[in-house]
Amino acid sequence: MTRSVIVTGGFGVLGNAVAELFASRGDKVTRIDYAATASAPIAGTLDIGGIDLTDTEATKGALAKVVAAHGGIDVLVNVAGGFAWETLEDGDLATWSKMQSMNLMTNATITQLALPELKKSAAGRIVNIGAGGAVKAGMGMGAYAASKSGVHRMTEALAEELAGSTVTVNAVLPSIIDTPTNRADMADADFSQWVSPGAVAKVIAFLASDDAASISGALLPVSRGS
């Protein structure tokens, strides 16, 4: 069955890997991103750039384009987000608001607005991106971890809220993802211990599959694999 799949943050490294995997399996994929354009196209994919996912009206407009083009929404993968490292003592309190906006409110906004279409699906799926680093926060990780912990709690609460529906809600909790940015920021790290975007994408695809129909409210660590 061909499904309508939305990947937020779809122009980034992880979002692109997720979108490519779903597209390769025959799904109708939409990438939604804050950036205006993607660095590279994916054949057959609908790209909607320049969307602030904390803006309700802009998000409604993007979702309307998806429904018009693909007939509905079956899968929502919330990849959009960001990262900041700074200590509380020396950092900027505005970073805490920024992390909440980028990581939690983008997710909450599009999820709430997509729910009517997801609930029409015979097998609606929501997969969020949490963080292994939000289970126990290290130094400098407070603002980021707090926002990702919010994603964890929202995942659990929404799974219970939708328990009587056809929609499941889960989150993957990656460790450090092997991206060019992370390699540049942590040049002395052992990259072999990181998880690849493709490996995370495969776990997301599983949670969006029929085989995972009995799983909802799970926070699934993803810490290895290339």
Rank of each mutant, 00 (worst) to 15 (best):
Met1Asp: 12
Val7Tyr: 05
Gly9Arg: 02
Gly10Arg: 03
Gly12Cys: 04
Leu14Ala: 02
Leu14His: 04
Glu20Thr: 07
Glu20Lys: 09
Leu21Trp: 06
Phe22Ser: 03
Arg25Tyr: 09
Gly26Ala: 07
Val29Arg: 00
Val29Cys: 04
Ile32Gln: 01
Thr37Glu: 15
Ser39Asn: 13
Pro41Gln: 12
Gly44Leu: 11
Gly44Ile: 12
Leu46Cys: 08
Asp47Trp: 05
Gly50Arg: 13
Ile51Asn: 01
Leu53Trp: 02
Leu53Cys: 03
Thr54Asn: 13
Thr54Glu: 14
Thr56Val: 15
Glu57Ser: 13
Lys65Phe: 02
Ala69Trp: 04
His70Ile: 02
Gly71Leu: 10
Gly72Asn: 04
Gly72Thr: 01
Gly72Pro: 00
Asn78Val: 11
Gly82Asn: 14
Glu86Asn: 08
Asp92Gln: 13
Asp92Trp: 09
Leu93Cys: 02
Ala94Leu: 13
Ala94Gly: 10
Thr95Lys: 06
Trp96Ala: 14
Trp96Gly: 05
Met99Phe: 12
Met105Ala: 05
Asn107Tyr: 14
Asn107Gly: 00
Thr109Pro: 00
Thr111Phe: 03
Thr111Ile: 07
Leu115Glu: 01
Ala122Met: 08
Ala122Thr: 09
Ala123Gln: 13
Asn128Pro: 01
Asn128His: 08
Gly130Lys: 03
Gly132Leu: 14
Gly142Thr: 15
Gly142Phe: 13
Ala145Tyr: 07
Gly150Trp: 09
Val151Phe: 05
Met154Asn: 00
Leu158Asn: 01
Ala159His: 08
Ala159Glu: 03
Glu160Arg: 09
Glu161Gln: 08
Leu162Pro: 00
Ala163Gly: 01
Val167Thr: 11
Val167Ile: 10
Val167Lys: 00
Thr168Cys: 05
Ala171Val: 08
Leu173Thr: 02
Leu173Glu: 04
Pro174Arg: 12
Pro174Glu: 10
Pro174Ile: 12
Ile176Arg: 09
Ile177Gly: 03
Ile177Asn: 03
Ile177Met: 14
Thr179Gly: 08
Asn182His: 12
Met186Ser: 12
Phe191Gln: 09
Phe191Lys: 06
Val195Ser: 07
Ala199Glu: 12
Val203Ile: 13
Ala205Ile: 02
Ala205Tyr: 05
Phe206His: 11
Phe206Asp: 03
Asp211Pro: 04
Ala213Lys: 15
Ala213Ile: 12
Ile215Phe: 13
Leu219Gln: 06
Leu220Met: 14
Leu220Phe: 11
Ser223Leu: 15
Gly225Glu: 10
